[in-house]
Amino acid sequence: MRPAEIGHLLKLELLLDQRQKHAMGGMLLYVASAVYVCYLAVRHIEEASVWNALFWLILLFAAFNTLARSFQREDTGRQLYLYTLTHPRSLVLARTLYNALSMTAVSLLTLGAYTLFIGSDGLDDARWPAFSGIVVLGGIGFAAVLTLIGAIAARAGSGTGLMAVLGFPLVLPLLLSVMRASQLALQGLGLETSGRYLVWLLAIDAITVALSAVLYPYLWRD
């Protein structure tokens, strides 16, 4: 496991994504249509808690959609190729990093689309920089937890359904603390109150990344 190896793998992921532009486009379309459906259903939301909950629901499903691809898109040929060339630990760390990057993009995009359509009436006190920061951290957290789950689901040979079943109870602690923190930010409270939720968020991220690094090599073996 070398940093250079992780860098190369990261580049490979980016290259693969450029080659599969339709996947990224599909992702954007998913976010746009989910937000639009919400807009059609509710028009605009007065209450901060409902606004917050709906946003996180959209982002949660967007995360499952984005991250399910990461291990399922590779065929056995490439898998074998990577297997012989790299250490599994660098692979999982590179994938987690890459997933974190793409989730950052997806969560910011979702936030943009969501505020554009649903609007932000009644959220005049909201602290948008803090809220965006929490959203990005939450997105990275989803990426950290769901990368290993995606790998397990892919190894089990079943589709995204299994990933949702396995991943859903495990993202709950993350989801609850991130929702609480963003709720506070929407109500105009600064980081001094939501700070402790962010500490837990970072702790969960660190624990999951460490566990992924330790456990992934066992999935790899066959």
Partner: peptide, 8 residues
């Protein structure tokens, strides 16, 4: 797979 999931 089950052991990895269980630990995680």
């Amino acid at each position: 797979l089950a052991a990895v999931y269980n630990l995680f």
